[in-house]
């Protein structure tokens, strides 16, 4: 969970912890839910770029 990794009030994440998270993503890939979310956001971003 993001809050577990970063602290509920959003404290700084150590470089080591961030690198561990990066290594995990390189190994496992991002979750399907996250990629779906990112794809939807990218669509909205294109709309904003065109209509702002």
């Amino acid at each position: 969970m993001a809050t577990e990794a970063t602290g509920k009030t959003g404290q700084k994440v150590s470089t080591e912890k961030r690198m561990q998270a990066f290594a995990k993503t390189i190994t496992d890939g991002a979750s399907a839910d996250y990629m779906k979310y990112l794809k939807q956001e990218a669509k909205e971003n294109r709309i904003i770029e065109k209509h702002l």
């Binding site: 969970m1 993001a2 970063t6 602290g7 959003g10 961030r18 998270a21 990066f22 991002a30 979750s31």
Partner: peptide
């Protein structure tokens, strides 16, 4: 998010 990604800053 369901997990923390290294490019996230909370």
């Amino acid at each position: 998010f369901d997990r923390f990604y290294s490019w996230h800053v909370v």
